[in-house]
Nucleic acid binder design. Structure first.
Lengths: 145, 145
DNA sequence: GTCAATGCAAATCGTTTGCATGAAC
DNA sequence: GTTCATGCAAACGATTTGCATTGAC
């Protein structure tokens, strides 16, 4: 399974630019996150590797290393929630925030322009130059209420 | 150091009501969070216990157990700040969000009613019952710009 | 051929648990 | 005296690291 998305091209570029090696393992990990429709923990990524790419004898340590690397170069990002550990998602998705169920761990994404606007305003009021933000609403989802 | 805040009284009441024992350890842990002006990890709480109450030979396991208990009875709450893991704060403080300088680490607290309102609205739209939230804006403060 | 990346296993970190002891009631 | 909470150490799960080997360049 060869993919040719923008993100994969971007990865190739970054790796070359940094004088590092382009490996199948990093591509596989990125690819899985590109196709995931939910946030995945390192372990879930690892399991998907074993499911979808059984021929690639990839180790869990490599998954962790690839995830760190991809986050560092800003192709993916992570959010930490409660005890479930770090969860990753690819950055090719448009910006959004998260509603997180504290019982089942389900994550719903949302975007609200008005909140973004208020954030910019607050930053200005405090003489801050915003470089990023993270917002999570915690609660009980419809099935766990 | 004996404290007599509302929260301590509340703890005594809850413990009695549940037929449990009132222990110095639980009081100490709560007390530290009542006086902390920032969010503390379990380990930080533990270190403060050893600093401020050296005579009390409290174990890390007890700190964890006390924190779980206090959170369960809603005297404190925890949030996961990025990768830093779970951090606790007492519930006697008024609600606020954070502006965090990524250079010097300075934290400015703020509150914005409009954002809170939008959050409630979003929760309703997604059939979520909100129990808490955490929002951080990252950027450069006035001195670091 | 060089050097970064990998796989594996061991090590480490933060947190939890089992159990005998001690403290609250 | 009964029962819950504690301290300690061992156990645990998730993540990281050391090291010899492999693979990209």
């Amino acid at each position: 399974m060869k993919e040719n998305s923008e993100a994969i091209e971007e990865l190739k570029k970054i790796v070359k630019q940094k004088g590092l090696k382009y490996t199948e393992q990093r591509e596989i990990v990125l690819n899985i996150l590109l196709h995931a429709d939910e946030h995945l923990t390192a372990e879930e990524v690892y399991n998907q590797v074993k499911d979808h790419y059984p021929e690639s004898n990839i180790g869990i340590a490599t998954v962790y290393r690839a995830l760190s690397f991809l986050e560092e170069v800003d192709l993916i990002s992570s959010i930490a929630f409660g005890t479930d550990g770090k969860k990753y998602e690819s950055n090719d998705k448009s910006h959004h925030d998260h509603l997180i169920c504290t019982i089942c761990g389900k994550i719903i994404e949302f975007f609200d322009k008005e909140i973004e606007d208020r954030q910019d305003r607050i930053a200005k009021e405090n003489d801050f130059k915003i470089t990023g933000h993270s917002m999570q609403l915690y609660g009980l989802c419809s099935s766990c209420k």
